[in-house]
Design a protein around this nucleic acid. Structure first.
Length: 821
RNA sequence: GCGGGUGUGGCGGAACUGGCAGACGCGCUGGACUUAGGAUCCAGUGGGUAACCGUGGGGGUUCAAGUCCCUCCACCCGCACCA
């Protein structure tokens, strides 16, 4: 053993050995229980950043720990390898192909991961851009298509001018593209969708099953799905055949409707205003709204604005004629794109009615109170009793919701309806670097899916990248022109590619069967491994990736392809890595590169620091001094073993008091570290417990030692350290004379008896304040304890002239003497 | 506005079901070893001379509150004219 801790030679040495020993290659089938530990696979941007290091260090502790607890651990890694940056790099630099760029990046990041010593089963590596992977992405698309879950429609979609492609709703954040932050525009385009709305209810209901998910993520998904219950009610339009349906959660307020509002894009707007004096005004308003972006139109500060259409609707309950308006605050995408205006009981309607002098009619009052329309300063949205509501007057409004809906249904102009905020998932992208959508267009046969035996539809290599707003594949005749699989006639291929979130919605199944050429995965293997026991990644995927993956799993479940209907049992969302209080970013110039840290201190130090500096879910403030501290600690462990290894042996002498204390500390540490990993993922406190053990051992090694005990303590220390700092643990394990890898060791079990000491210190309080402390025998009687406490010199003095009201005894903890005067 | 989270020394952070606030680490101070120390080892380190005071502020429950209840404040994240 060298005197110096030389991570530069230790780390590569063990990485090589682990690979030779196939230490992390896991059997698909064995007698052991299984554990699937998964970290979100990265986009191969080129280099690892600290967020990655954190993510994979956390996962590696879990994987290594579970292995030592006797599990077969599936711990794989791969690449979410399709996507825009590759194509943008090609456009920017001109001479590099997205595929080459991506594969180079993968090679580099794989090397970095290996240098970190993460215990992956590299045989299972997948890359979504590999034809043998996206072949199955396309195959899955076809299964969705067959089930009627993939369809094409013309719709107003989100267009990102920066990325020159459409985006899913989930990818639009504050009206901006989540990737490049361009302002998203609305475009009317024919696009492919996945019918995620068909699963809205199940996606919502099954959130209840996700006991191992953070509350926060569950709430975010719930909000995103946005279920609301209400009624759809149809209003006739005076002088027209057509009718307009509105969705409302408050059918109980139907008698208070004084106007109706349509979204400017509502399909009937032009028709009903045609020929009225309002025709010009309406067209102008529409034009103005089109010109404004989504954000400008719907910003909180935006005034409610509207214009009369010249047409009137008829309230089906009252027969009243009410004006139809169009307004900026009504969204065509939500509900039916039309709302009934009830200014007395909806704050938005109230503001709008006040502005345009529309009538206000009170139909609900708080029990025992009165409301005057003229005196309202805001809408009354609370519960109450119906007034001015014909036959329904006098009902409690909650009840009225049901009764009125039922009545509308009976009379044929309404029905109960559940409405969701969730929209169908727009999956086509007008870009090259993605999985081609496997359909062809035939003049005779229309849309024809590519037969499964012709998959994959391979991306052509020679393509010119021009950000034109159209897929570059359009200009590749060899790709574009094909024959119809049905009639054999001339046909053209779909040139759009799939949203990369599709590729990442099923990769965790592929890991079970990464090289299967017959099927996307072996059902048997999926049954062994799934669900994922622990999933770890950033909270930024709370909606996108995690919702899509749940959706995929439910579809696959319905198709009989998998046996689980939720993919991830436990989810850990790790916090961000910050520097100077802000997220690391190039523009801020506060980036710390993992490469530098590993170079300077080694992978073990980098990992240890990241795990020690904060609990996993919390944000982590980077500290160069903290890294120094972790490095120092590893050196301290090194020296401890260097200095003591020649004094240990199998000779276990009878325990002295000092030995007992060390033994107690050792077992307490095992207990603490085990519980911290197992129950809470509190790696920071697990590591601090190991530090305390090391401190204790430094004390212990001075003077008389028990060679057998010291040997045991050092060995167990190294095992406890192994999940956190696997290389140095391995080297020290060897130095202690062990032959087999430390990572094959069983996790130590603590001895409950060793934790029990003969004497315990108890605190003596007077009126709840600590005044003294004494050592007492562990099992002392309450009366004895009282006796001792009241008679220590200090307490005697303090209570001499006071009246003792009562004495509270908490065994093995404290005694509180309550006094008066 | 709604929903969620956080608030503890100079700093990162500990504190299980209410029971010694500040574990562990960083930083700082002192000492030892040393040609030297920015290495290492040892000791000290919330504030205050003290009684005491201290977990964002105020109130409450309790023998006892960082922990429970009420109320207010600050910051962070998500959603946001969703009918």
């Amino acid at each position: 053993m060298q005197e110096r801790y030389d991570f530069k030679s230790i780390e590569p040495k063990w990485q090589k050995k682990w690979e030779e020993l196939k230490l992390y290659e896991v059997d698909d089938f064995s007698e052991k229980p299984k554990y699937y530990c998964l970290e979100m696979f990265p986009y191969p941007s080129g280099k690892l950043h600290m967020g990655h290091v954190r993510n994979y260090s956390i996962g590696d502790v879990v994987a290594r720990y579970k292995r030592m607890r006797g599990y077969d651990v599936l711990h794989p890694m791969g690449w979410d390898a399709f996507g825009l940056p590759a194509e943008n790099a090609a456009i920017k630099h001109g001479n590099i192909h997205p595929a080459d760029w991506t594969w180079d990046n993968i090679a580099n990041m794989r090397r970095q991961l290996k240098e970190l010593g993460i215990s992956y089963d590299w045989r299972r590596e997948v890359a979504t851009c590999h034809p043998e992977y996206y072949r199955w992405t396309q195959w899955l698309f076809l299964q969705f298509y067959k089930k009627g879950l993939a369809y094409k429609k013309k719709a107003p979609v989100n267009w990102c001018p920066g990325c020159q492609t459409v985006l899913a709703n989930e990818q639009v954040v504050d009206g901006e593209c989540e990737r490049c932050h361009s302002r998203v525009e609305k475009k009317e385009l024919e696009q492919w969708f996945f019918k995620i709305t068909a699963y809205a209810e199940r996606l919502l209901q099954d959130i209840k099953k996700l006991h191992g998910w953070p509350e926060k993520v569950k709430i975010m998904q719930e909000n995103w799905i946005g279920r609301s219950e209400g009624a759809e009610i149809t209003f006739k339009i005076k002088g027209h055949e057509e009718a307009i349906s509105v969705f409302t959660t408050r059918p109980d307020t139907i008698f208070g409707v004084t106007y109706m509002v349509l979204a400017p894009e509502h399909p009937l707007v032009e028709k009903i205003s045609r020929g009225t004096s309002q025709e010009q005004a309406v067209l102008e308003f529409k034009r103005k709204m089109m010109y404004l972006s989504e954000i400008e139109r719907t910003a909180e500060t935006a005034e409610k604005e509207g214009v009369f259409t010249g047409a009137f609707a008829i309230n089906p309950f009252t027969g009243e004629e009410i004006p139809i308006l169009i307004a900026n605050y009504v969204l065509v995408e939500y509900g039916t794109g039309a709302v009934m205006g009830v200014p007395a009981h909806d704050q938005r309607d109230f503001l709008f009615a006040k502005k345009y002098n529309l009538p206000i009619k009170v139909v609900i009052v708080p029990p025992g109170e009165e409301l005057k329309a003229e005196k309202l300063t805001e809408a009354y949205t609370g519960e109450g009793i119906l007034v001015n509501s014909g036959e329904f007057t006098g009902l409690a409004n909650k009840e009225a919701i049901r009764i009125i809906t039922r009545e509308a249904e009976k009379r044929g102009f309404g029905k109960y309806r559940v409405n969701y905020r969730l929209r169908d998932w727009l999956i086509s992208r007008q870009r090259y670097w993605g999985a081609p959508i496997p359909v062809v267009y035939c003049e005779k046969c229309g849309i024809v899916p590519v037969p499964e035996d012709q998959l994959p539809v391979v991306l052509p290599y020679n393509v010119e990248f021009r950000p034109t707003g159209e897929s570059p594949l359009k200009y590749v005749p060899e790709f574009l022109n094909t024959t119809c699989p049905e009639c054999g006639g001339p046909a053209t291929r779909e040139t759009d590619t799939m949203d990369t979130f599709i590729c990442s919605s099923w990769y965790y199944y592929r890991y079970t069967s990464p090289r299967d050429t017959e099927q996307p995965w072996s059902k048997e293997k999926v049954e062994r491994w799934l669900p994922v026991d622990q999933y770890i990644g950033g909270v930024e995927h709370a909606i996108l990736h995690l919702l899509y993956s749940r959706f995929f799993t439910k579809v696959l479940y319905d198709l009989g392809l998998v046996h689980v209907d939720e993919p991830f049992t436990n989810l850990l969302t790790q916090g961000m890595v910050l520097k100077d209080g802000a997220k690391m970013s190039k523009s801020r110039g506060n980036v710390v590169s993992p490469e530098e840290i590993v170079e300077k201190y080694g992978a073990d130090t980098a990992r240890l620091f990241i795990l020690f500096a904060a609990p996993p879910e919390r944000d982590l403030e980077w500290s160069d001094q903290g890294v120094e501290g972790s490095f120092r600690f590893l050196n301290r462990v090194w020296r401890l073993i260097y200095q003591t290894k020649d004094r240990i042996s199998d000779e276990l002498r009878e325990f002295s008091a000092k030995d007992k204390e060390l033994n107690r500390l050792l077992n307490a540490t095992i207990k603490k570290v085990t519980e911290d990993i197992e129950e809470r993922f509190n790696f920071n406190t697990a590591i601090s417990a190991i530090m305390e053990l090391v401190n204790g051992l430094y004390q212990y090694k001075e003077g008389e030692i028990n060679p057998g005990l010291l040997k045991e303590a050092l060995n167990k220390l190294v095992i406890l350290l192994a999940p956190f700092a696997p290389h140095i643990a391995e080297e020290l394990w060897e130095a202690l004379g062990n032959k087999q890898s430390v990572h094959l060791e069983k996790w130590p079990v603590y001895d409950e008896k060793a934790l029990i000491t003969e004497e315990v210190e108890i605190v003596i309080q007077v009126n709840g304040k600590v005044k003294d402390r004494v050592m007492v025998p562990r099992n002392a009687e309450e009366a004895t304890l009282k006796e001792i406490a009241l008679n220590t010199p200090k307490i005697k003095e303090l209570t001499a002239d006071k009246k003792i009201i009562k004495v509270i005894v908490v065994p093995e903890k404290l005694i509180n003497i309550v006094v008066a005067g």
